[in-house]
Design a protein around this nucleic acid. Sequence first.
DNA 1: TGACAATGTTACCGATCGGTACGTATACAT
DNA 2: ATGTATACGTACCGATCGGTAACATTGTCA
Lengths: 205, 205
Amino acid sequence: MPTDKNIDLTISEGHASPPPKAAKKILDVAYDLFYRRGIRAIGVDEIVKRAGVTKPSLYRSFPSKDELAASYLRQYDLEYWERFDEAVAAHPGDPRAQIKAFLTRIGKRTQVADYRGCGMTNAAVEYPDHSHPARMVSEANKQELRRRLRAMAVAMGAQDPDTLGDGLLLLIEGAYISGQLFGLGGPAQAVARNADLLIEASLKK
Amino acid sequence: MPTDKNIDLTISEGHASPPPKAAKKILDVAYDLFYRRGIRAIGVDEIVKRAGVTKPSLYRSFPSKDELAASYLRQYDLEYWERFDEAVAAHPGDPRAQIKAFLTRIGKRTQVADYRGCGMTNAAVEYPDHSHPARMVSEANKQELRRRLRAMAVAMGAQDPDTLGDGLLLLIEGAYISGQLFGLGGPAQAVARNADLLIEASLKK
DNA sequence: TGACAATGTTACCGATCGGTACGTATACAT
DNA sequence: ATGTATACGTACCGATCGGTAACATTGTCA
């Protein structure tokens, strides 16, 4: 079947053909609009208009709006773990400092006007149906987050690593949500402090 | 101006006229659909169909879909504080036990299939615009939650009550979100345990 | 019996939704 | 130059969106 839609947006290097420029523009615009205003709130017409392309161009690169939303989240996923790994790399062998660095960054990020939380979390709220393409990306991302946090709780020497890992996840999700709910001066700025208290209380004596 | 739409759904007692039956049916159905599937995902046509009424009936009782959504959240708000006050009343003068009771209940509630989190939180995610009627109800509810939690942190004798109150709020919001993200066996079941650890670590020595 | 308020009925509005049939322009290899 | 493939644009589709106009029907109370 020659109906292979070009979802793979890999930028071909050097001499190779630098293909679908439209697809990249579309995904960039969709990323911004979906994140800031919500997926359901944005129609494909607005996306193609802002991207300076036309609708058929969108549907040549993406099989549906739902799949475009999933692509947006896959991009979000990439950048999410980049940020996560930066915090980890900044404190080699010190998981507690890694967590603190990651949460301090989140806490800061929530303290800007019109902060919109986590794109993954938001997408899951918008699409309760577990079979929706966007939600599946979101759920996979969160499972991975849970896995990493629990592993770090083990490395920290927690009495009950699963409980601590999950507690950290709750604080993080709480920061994402309350960041967009309260705006400046909200509870999210206290996330790193509370996480550190929780860690301290969870270590083996 | 005689355009007083009947948003007040007070049930008149006894002999008084038991008016708008349609409005109640509409709000009940809207409540269920908005909560389970999301506000943006549900059209007014589906609401009136499931309620067994017609569209003009809806627009005689509610000025717009947005206002119907706000009414849904006002109802949600009422029931929310009912549940909160139940946990408080169960442990008079013992804020720590009150929190524990409230969070244990949340933790249990999240452990059912197709749990959909907090209607207030979800609405805020669906409507980033701060001027949207539904979002305004949601934000007011969360401000009140923050106020109460901080007051309870004071009553518990926390070293830094604002930080503890906000930490509890983060855990709660995290439970709402991860409850619907992870389904059974998710991190939300650990919310009460983590809250208690955090409280213990936050008290004056 | 008459008046009023609440609900129902039917039909409609313009706007927007996600998605597509089909013709055109451009690039490159031969 | 010509064929071939790929990318793009014009114009359109049916369905649904939130919302309304105009009128008929019902039940209640005076």
